[in-house]
């Protein structure tokens, strides 16, 4: 059983190597993006500013920005709902046993 973050890392580690290379660079660019305006990388921003940056990249006209967000969004959503769905199934199983 892997966590959502673990699933994301595992997916990234297995993706085609040329795409993985591009995504790693893009992810670093994404993290460094707010540095010029806030003095902090993305992972040190507070939640509202993080959401704001994700929204800006999602709506960007640049395809690579949209693509990066779409990739992470899709796999986080799939990973998260897999976990929720499994928890539901486990709860259902326990209720039946009780």
């Amino acid at each position: 059983m892997v966590s959502v973050v673990g699933f994301l890392f595992a997916t990234q580690a297995r993706m085609p190597d040329h795409l993985r290379f591009a995504f790693r660079i893009l992810t670093l660019v994404f993290d460094a993006w707010p540095y010029a305006t806030t003095g902090k990388p993305f992972h040190r921003l507070d939640l509202p500013r993080r959401i704001d940056q994700v929204e800006r990249w999602k709506r960007s006209r640049l395809a690579f920005r949209q693509g990066l967000i779409a990739f992470y969004r899709s796999f986080v959503i799939f990973g998260l709902y897999s976990e929720l769905s499994k928890q539901d199934a486990d709860r259902g199983m326990r209720a039946k046993q009780d």
Binding site: M1, V2, F7, A10, T11, R14, M15, P16, L19, F71, F78, G79, S82
Partner: peptide, 16 residues
């Protein structure tokens, strides 16, 4: 399942 994608799909299903 998520684990099937990681273990049985090429490149964890990320092919474009």
């Amino acid at each position: 399942s998520r684990d099937e994608i990681l273990h049985k799909y090429r490149n964890a299903g990320v092919n474009v």
